[in-house]
Structure formats: structure tokens, C-alpha cells
Design a binder for these strands. Structure first.
Length: 239
DNA sequence: AAGACATACAACCGCGTGTCG
DNA sequence: GCGACACGCGGTTGTATGTCT
């Protein structure tokens, strides 16, 4: 595949945007929408590449961008989501309305990384940086009727993952953990379908599948989450 | 006051992935 | 199935600003 020439070679401008350029971009998108980013600068009369325009819009000019310092709650949310998702900045940004992945990444590298250096992380994020956003389409297990109330205590886990945790934990009934325990902890996970693991369990264990880690590593992740939530299931083995 | 250094953040780069013909 | 293209993502860099000596 041949890569398109970079902006400079095409005689396009690089570097910081001027207020005039910002206004041109805003006006154009207000009138026409962004459409094709590659075609936009020419149509709008900007000497920028489409990539630069898209970045400027999504990271700075978009009307729903929240400017200003991060609140303590937002920072806590980032720390917790990072523990679960790793460096998946866009996934973290999706849970923080008005904040961009770039902004969150910057805050992480300049403030938060230093702050959590003093505290031991509960899991190695790199192992679990592939956690999926949504359950499989035909996800078979329904939430228990009492699940919402019981898992609401998971809020102690931290505010950032409270809602997500409720969604995750409500699927984990006794049958779920029985199935977990039926798998040999020493198994190196590459393809769960070959050992007859159900679809919902494959979903939860997918980070380990992709990272090539073993069952022990993966269940340790869940164990730590449950330990902190105070909702450790009886069936979950102690690691 | 001024130079050196540190920090914050905007912007860029390259790669992976999805889509379409 | 394949190639071309567009887009999004994460890592990295560049520069403006702040702080220290």
C-alpha cells in the first residue's frame, strides 16, 4: 500500500493553529459537516491536511469539549479505568463526557502516573488492555433480579468503574463460577472454544486469551476486583 | 533580570483496521 | 479475495509557559 505524502511535501502547513484557521474550520463544519476529512481542507480553503483538521476539531474545536482542569472525580475515574483498560485512551475518553483521548493521555502522563507510583497497582494493566466494550451480540445470560442492589456496593471499588462493574458482575452467578473452576488453572489460554468454554465466559476471559496469559493470571484479575468490592463469591478460588 | 530546566499540552507520525469498488 | 483509501488510535515530539537558581 502506498502511503499518501506527508503535509509538508504537499506544501501544506504544520504546527499550531491560528484563530483564523480555527474559525474557518468551525464555520465550514457548521455549514457542511466534516464529511470526508481528506477533502475538507481544500473545500474549506485551509492549507492543512485532512488529518490535521480532524485532530484539531476532535481535540479542541468540537462544541461538546469540556475545557479546564480535571476534577478530582475525573482523575480518580481515569486511574480506575486505566487499571482496567490499560492505555486504551479512546475507551477511557468514551466514559468521560467532554474529554478527549489526547487530553486524558496528557493528564495521565503528566499528573496521574506519578501519583499512583506510590500505590501498588492491583493488576498489571498491560495484560488486560484488550477488555471488550460490550458483551457478544447473542450474550445468553440475563442479569439476576437482585443483581443491581447487591452489586451497587461495588461503588467502594471506586466511582469510575461503578456502573461498568454492575454490568459485569451481575452476569457472574454460581453457574458462571462453576464453569470457571472447571478449567485447569495452569492452562495457557489460546482458544477456549477447543475446551468447550461458554461464550459468556470467553467474553470475560478474552483479555487473557489475547495476551496469551494463563487462567491463573486472568482469574487473579477478577479476584482483585472482587476483593476490593467486598463481594468475593464463595466459589472463587483464593489466589 | 536572565538563563537553565521542568512541565503541560497541542499537534504530529506511523500503524492497524474497516470499508468499498 | 485484493488493493486503495479513509479514518481512528496510541506513542512521540515540539513548543509555550512556568519555576528555579
Amino acid at each position: 500500500m502506498v502511503r499518501a505524502p506527508c503535509c509538508e511535501k504537499m506544501g501544506l502547513k504544520k504546527g499550531p493553529w491560528t484563530p483564523e484557521e480555527d474559525q474557518i474550520l468551525i464555520n465550514y463544519i457548521d455549514l457542511h459537516g466534516h464529511g470526508n476529512w481528506r477533502a475538507l481542507p481544500k473545500l474549506a480553503g485551509l492549507l492543512r491536511c485532512g488529518k490535521s483538521c480532524r485532530l484539531r476539531w476532535t481535540n479542541y474545536l468540537r462544541p461538546d469539549i469540556k475545557r479546564g482542569n480535571f476534577t478530582g472525580e475525573e482523575e480518580e475515574t481515569i486511574i480506575n479505568l486505566h487499571a482496567m483498560l490499560g492505555n486504551r485512551w479512546s475507551a477511557i475518553a468514551a466514559r468521560l463526557p467532554g474529554r478527549t483521548d489526547n487530553e486524558i493521555k496528557n493528564v495521565w502522563h503528566t499528573h496521574l502516573k506519578k501519583r499512583i507510583k506510590h500505590t501498588q497497582p492491583i493488576v498489571n494493566p498491560s495484560k488486560f488492555n484488550k477488555i471488550q466494550e460490550e458483551p457478544p451480540v447473542n450474550f445468553p445470560i440475563q442479569a439476576r433480579s437482585d443483581a443491581t442492589e447487591s452489586s451497587s456496593d461495588v461503588s467502594s471499588l471506586t466511582t469510575g468503574i461503578k456502573v461498568e462493574s454492575q454490568d459485569m458482575f451481575c452476569h457472574m452467578d454460581d453457574d458462571f463460577w462453576s464453569e470457571v473452576l472447571s478449567i485447569d488453572n495452569s492452562d495457557v489460554v489460546s482458544d477456549f472454544s477447543t475446551v468447550g468454554v461458554s461464550q459468556e465466559l470467553q467474553y470475560y476471559l478474552s483479555p487473557a486469551m489475547e495476551a496469551g496469559s494463563n487462567m491463573h493470571d486472568n482469574m487473579e484479575f477478577w479476584y482483585n476486583l472482587f476483593s476490593r468490592s467486598g463481594e468475593l463469591p464463595d466459589l472463587l478460588p483464593n489466589f
